[in-house]
């Protein structure tokens, strides 16, 4: 049985995860999430959706009321497997009396990384996140960005199979954000699974293979980025001239007129050609025809709209 579960393709397989705080606040109402091995998975949703609770349940910080599933092929909460997971919590607080190097040794020892490997990994990771110069400085002297870099190094010290990062780019400048994205892609190429919780949707879009949208403690949508956005393609036709006389015909074709361009929701090329023909018949110059795929933010807003919620994406 163990051998079978170890062989599962899912790095994270969560089934019917429920959590209610103080018997009143239903944070999770039966969440099902699957994350494939070696992929970068993004979790998004508005404030209070239950994202942090889900991450904390995965990391055994919060105890679920009800949950099935596995992480790295072992039942949720298996402590031995935690040695193979790296974690960066949101708003982490590191002991100010330690230096950066001491902190890496401390957390490395907590996951039983042998000293020689700790030393080697700590040095290379500090260099990777640009913190070598500050390795021996006390943490209470670090800026927020430096703390975040150190946090990322800490999460990777045990050469994890799965990395769970809660707002990893919080407090980082644009350059450091780009470096973090590159690091995440590097991890993916090495076969590491990355579970990301970030409110920066554009960043998730740049690195994630699959995402899940969590709303009110339930997964509203889940899939690859193309799966989530394929039905939300629209064509935008830029033109010069007046389309006032065509207004009724265009609206009949489901076209909306927005300033200097027309928007056609959906990917129906025949309809696009009919609109182009209509415009050409009237001698209107067509400047460009561009397919426009919806962003993750558009998908989130649309999903929230479908659920009757106001959009306020956040951690």
């Amino acid at each position: 049985m163990v051998a079978i579960t170890e062989m599962t393709n899912w790095a994270v397989d969560l089934i019917d995860v429920r959590k209610t705080y103080d018997r009143k606040v239903q944070a999770l109402r039966g969440v099902n999430i699957q994350v494939g091995r070696g992929e970068i998975f993004g979790l998004l949703g508005p404030n209070g959706a239950g994202k942090s609770t889900l991450v904390k349940i995965m990391m055994t910080v919060v105890r679920p009321d009800h949950a099935f599933g596995t992480i790295l092929g072992r039942p949720l909460g298996n402590r031995r497997k935690l040695q193979r997971i790296g974690y960066l919590p949101e708003g982490h607080r590191f002991p100010g009396y330690l230096t950066g190097m001491q902190l890496l040794h401390y957390y490395g020892a907590l996951v039983k990384v042998p000293r020689t490997r700790r030393e080697a990994n700590a040095e290379s990771l500090l260099e990777r996140v640009g913190m070598t110069r500050w390795a021996d400085a006390r943490i209470d002297k670090y800026s927020k960005g430096m703390l975040q870099r150190l946090g990322i190094a800490q999460a990777l010290l045990n050469d994890p199979e799965l990395v769970v990062l809660d707002e990893p780019t919080d407090g980082l400048d644009p350059l450091a954000r780009r470096e973090t994205r590159e690091l995440l892609l590097e991890l993916k190429h090495r076969g590491t699974t990355v579970f990301l919780n970030s409110h920066l949707l554009s960043e998730l879009e740049m690195v994630c293979d699959r995402v899940a949208i969590l709303i009110d403690g339930l997964v509203a949508r889940q899939g690859t980025l193309s799966e989530l956005t394929e039905h939300t393609v629209e064509y935008r036709i830029a033109f010069s001239g007046s389309v006032t006389a065509l207004q009724a015909q265009l609206q009949a074709l489901g076209v909306s007129i927005e300033g200097g361009h027309l928007s056609l929701p959906g990917g129906d090329m025949e309809r696009v050609n009919r609109v182009i023909d209509l415009l050409r018949e009237r001698g209107i110059t067509i400047e460009s025809v561009q397919p426009h795929r919806f962003s993750l933010e558009d998908v989130l807003v649309e999903t929230l709209g479908a659920q009757g919620r106001a959009a306020s994406p956040g951690p």
């Binding site: 910080v61 402590r79 040695q83 708003g91 607080r93 957390y107 907590l110 996951v111």
Partner: peptide, 18 residues
Amino acid sequence: PSFLERGAIDLALSKSLS
């Protein structure tokens, strides 16, 4: 109390020690 502060305890609890 400082060990149990939010952000500090999360990391300690997520390690393999019971």
